[in-house]
């Protein structure tokens, strides 16, 4: 699986929110695109990822 251009190995059926938290992301400040589409926060814990998926993840910081 690709996340932000880097390769990761994930077991099929891994829950997206679990994987993000395991990588240190704080969900309320994180926007995730799965194969080009933004995943709504409410769906993060019901979305599964597999080795063929591509994620773009933004961890927002404050300021602006």
């Amino acid at each position: 699986m690709k996340a932000n251009g880097e390769e990761y190995t994930v077991a099929d059926g891994t829950v997206l929110s679990d994987w993000l938290v395991s990588q240190g992301y704080v969900l309320e400040k994180t926007a995730v695109l799965l194969n080009g589409n933004v995943v709504p926060r409410a769906s993060l814990n019901s979305t599964t990822i597999s080795d063929t998926d591509c994620l773009e993840i933004v961890s927002f910081v404050g300021g602006g």
Partner: peptide, 13 residues
Amino acid sequence: AFDVASEKTKLVE
């Protein structure tokens, strides 16, 4: 053009 990280995320969604 928000300033709070969680608000930026909510807006994107």
